[in-house]
Simulated assay, not measured.
Amino acid sequence: MVILVIAVTFMVGIQCAEVRKAKCKVKWFPRCYQSEHYCPPECPHHCEVDCAACKPVCNCNKPGAVCEDPRFVGGDGVAFYFHGKKNQDFCLVSDPDLHINAHFIGKSKASMKRDFTWVQSIAILFGSHNLFIGAHKVAKWDGSSDHLSVIFDGRPVNLPLSEGSEWRAQVDPALTMTRTHDTNEVVAEVAGKFKITARVVPITAEESRVHGYEITDEDCFAHLDLRFKFYSLSEEVSGVLGQTYREGYKSRVKMGAAMPIMGGDREFATTNLFAADCAMARFEGGAAIGGNILADEYAGMRCASGIGGHGIVCKK
């Protein structure tokens, strides 16, 4: 009996080690603040705590989420898929003072009419500024290494590799970047405009097996799981995700389908990651970069931690 108890305890210990914990970090909820919770079974490796309810929730199930292959949850709460095409760029949000594009990476499969795709990077245009957040290409995943690149107005953002470290833009103090984990997770926020949570994640061997991705050891297709929160969108807002925030918006996807898919590849396509030129563009700012700057130029950067983990160093 003693041996059985020890064995069960050991197995539970292994299981818990594989499940990540999340902590409430909002001081406004004193009863829950700093309390830790195991992530739910449906998202054992990535979750956050709803401090008001004091319970863990899956980030990818909330409005404004863009995760996986890629699965969107619109501002109306309706979940859908937008596959786009690999190695192309698409407009996620377009408003008069904010424009967000995404660069898709993926794999083709002879037996399928579409590509497997994931969001590798995003470009946020606001005012006269542009912000790039992207995942580096990785062969074998190592979560203790940072695979995230952040570039503001063409300059790498130096953000120490420690949870809670913060960077504020000198030319626009409203923009802050904060690490929510030692590596691979950041929050970009412009006060009164948006808050974007970005996390670099790989395609695991189990995911590849279940979905038939056929991922090899040459590339684990590191990509971004994203969560958007907007504070001041207009009724003109468009884009794959943006349109779902309009009042009275009626979803274009077939409700009840096992995989509700939104089309519009041509409608939302842009000429490059930093171009606000999709057919539904609304952006009136001056942050767009000329067509000679492509997503691959940033995606192909080779980045590593600085000495002692003090920042990001990028080389072409």
Rank of each mutant, 00 (worst) to 15 (best):
F194R: 02
L161D: 06
H147V: 04
Y231D: 15
F90N: 10
E18F: 12
V171W: 00
W28S: 14
H181P: 01
K55D: 02
N272Q: 05
G13E: 08
Y38D: 04
D115L: 12
M177R: 01
G300D: 14
D50K: 01
Y249W: 13
G309K: 11
T244S: 15
E185R: 06
R246K: 15
A102Q: 06
F221T: 02
F116V: 03
D182E: 12
K55V: 04
C67I: 10
K140P: 00
V240R: 03
S35H: 10
K85S: 08
K229G: 12
C54G: 00
M112Y: 11
V8K: 04
V12N: 12
A102E: 06
D76Q: 08
S162L: 12
S208V: 11
V138H: 05
Y231W: 07
N61S: 14
L125I: 11
H147T: 04
F126H: 09
V187H: 00
G264F: 07
G143I: 07
D89V: 09
F29I: 06
G134I: 09
K254T: 11
A295R: 05
P260H: 07
W141C: 10
V5K: 05
H129R: 08
Q15W: 15
I124F: 02
R20G: 09
E297P: 00
D50N: 14
V93H: 03
M1N: 05
R199G: 00
Q34E: 11
H211D: 08
H103A: 13
E185I: 00
V57D: 03
Y33A: 00
G306N: 11
C58M: 08
T180K: 14
C39S: 02
I3W: 01
H46W: 12
N130T: 03
C24T: 09
I196V: 15
A287T: 07
L131T: 10
G311A: 04
K109R: 12
K85V: 00
D153F: 07
A288L: 01
P44M: 02
H45G: 01
L161K: 09
C24E: 06
V19C: 07
G306L: 14
T176A: 10
A198C: 07
F274K: 01
V12D: 07
K229V: 13
V19M: 08
S208P: 08
C16F: 14
P70S: 14
A287P: 02
A7H: 06
L224G: 13
A53M: 00
T117L: 07
W167I: 02
T271F: 01
G127H: 05
K195D: 02
G75A: 14
P70W: 05
L161M: 09
G285T: 10
F82E: 02
V150T: 14
L233F: 12
R155L: 04
F80M: 09
P70M: 09
T180E: 14
G291N: 08
A53N: 02
R31L: 13
P202F: 09
L159M: 08
G300T: 03
A269K: 15
A222G: 12
V313A: 06
I3M: 03
S165I: 07
V186I: 15
I289Y: 02
L233I: 05
V66R: 05
F126I: 01
D277A: 03
I105F: 01
C278F: 04
R114N: 12
D265T: 10
E206S: 07
L131Q: 10
